[in-house]
């Protein structure tokens, strides 16, 4: 165990390093950091009607359903399809050259294709040139940004109903990368987020975005709230207190004892009673006694092994407001 002064030095070193990085970044990009491309007059096509010639329903790359979405509304001055906003080319860039066949019969791609072989920065810049809403406030530097994800990795703007925006279909999009969570939502103790199918066995009543902000949030794990506990209290406010007799690990972090997505144990606990409790409570007599198969029928009948186990008596584990509730029993 390190003595306290060493920790102060570690902290000071970390702060110094971060301060240097801060000023280095604030000094702005290094000379020549930004790509300077020759400015040419952009060559736009004649607009959406020309695009729809090929990208209509039934073709290999249909895009007609964009007109069912909020993006495809001419009357909204912020829409790519509003007067003067260049329609499809507002996102894909000036694409007049894309219309002309090359000698080999192929076509040049539009400047921004949103394909996987295109840098995420380039794709996202197209999106974020308009989408600067508050829910994207934390995007730069967020987990998904640092991993190099692009907006279209999750969003499909060319369909009438983007699956990631609907409660029932959203988890399926998230599960494409978060397979561990997909399996956890099939456990018997879980939050009711949609499982793998629309079956009533795995019915989804919550969306991932009821807790997470995938564009980056103020809390850990892209949570919407500032802390894990604040997020949990949104729906579990009865556990917020403040209580007369608090239980320290509860007030610190709900995830000290619970897993959020799914668990093998009731109430999303991370381990089984009484052993979970005994990881932190090792007092004399019954608290530190060893419990095993000798405490269950037919060999025994121990009250810490059957029924609600430790919580047969210690019922107020999230905090008690009874003047006699020091041991979380009242």
């Amino acid at each position: 165990m390190k003595p306290f002064p060493d920790r102060v030095h570690t902290f000071n070193r970390a702060v110094t390093a971060l301060t240097l990085l801060f000023w280095l970044a604030l000094a702005g990009p290094v000379h020549g950091a930004e790509e300077v491309e020759a400015e040419e007059a952009p060559k736009y096509s004649k607009g959406v009607r020309q695009c729809m010639t090929c990208h209509r329903e039934g073709r290999e790359k249909p895009a007609h359903e964009i007109f069912f979405t909020t993006m495809g509304i001419k009357g909204d001055p912020n829409s790519p399809f509003a007067e003067g906003n260049h329609d499809c080319e507002a996102c894909h860039g000036p694409s007049a050259d894309h219309l002309r066949r090359q000698p080999d019969g192929s076509r040049l791609p539009p400047p921004v294709t949103f394909r996987k072989d295109e840098p995420a920065e380039k794709q996202n810049e197209a999106c974020m040139s308009c989408h600067n809403e508050s829910h994207l406030f934390h995007w730069p530097g967020s987990t998904h940004d640092l991993e190099g994800n692009s907006c279209v990795d999750c969003h499909d703007v060319h369909v009438a109903d983007d699956p990631v925006l609907a409660l029932e279909t959203q988890p399926g999009v998230c599960y494409q990368c978060h397979q561990e969570q997909r399996a956890q939502f099939l456990r018997q103790s879980r939050h009711p987020v949609q499982g793998t199918t629309a079956s009533l066995s795995h019915v989804g009543l919550l969306a991932c975005t009821d807790c997470h902000q995938p564009h980056g949030g103020p809390g850990p794990a892209n949570l919407i709230r500032n802390t894990i506990n604040e997020q949990c209290y949104d729906c579990h406010a009865e556990k917020r207190g403040p209580f007369l007799w608090e239980h320290a690990p509860v007030q610190e972090d709900c995830s000290n004892c619970h897993v959020p997505h799914g668990s093998n144990y009731e109430n999303l606990l991370i381990a089984r009673q009484p052993y979970l409790c005994q990881q932190c409570h090792l007092a004399d007599f019954h608290v530190s006694r060893v419990y095993s198969g000798t405490g269950i029928p037919p060999d025994g009948r121990d009250q810490r092994m059957l029924g609600k186990q430790c919580m047969n008596c210690h019922v107020q584990v999230h905090g008690s407001n009874h003047p006699s509730g020091i041991t979380q029993t009242r």
């Binding site: 801060f22 970044a25 604030l26 990009p29 020549g32 950091a33 930004e34 934390h138 730069p140 530097g141």
Partner: peptide
Amino acid sequence: VNLRLTSQLAR
């Protein structure tokens, strides 16, 4: 308090 600085230091 959350503070965040992001920067493209070079290309």
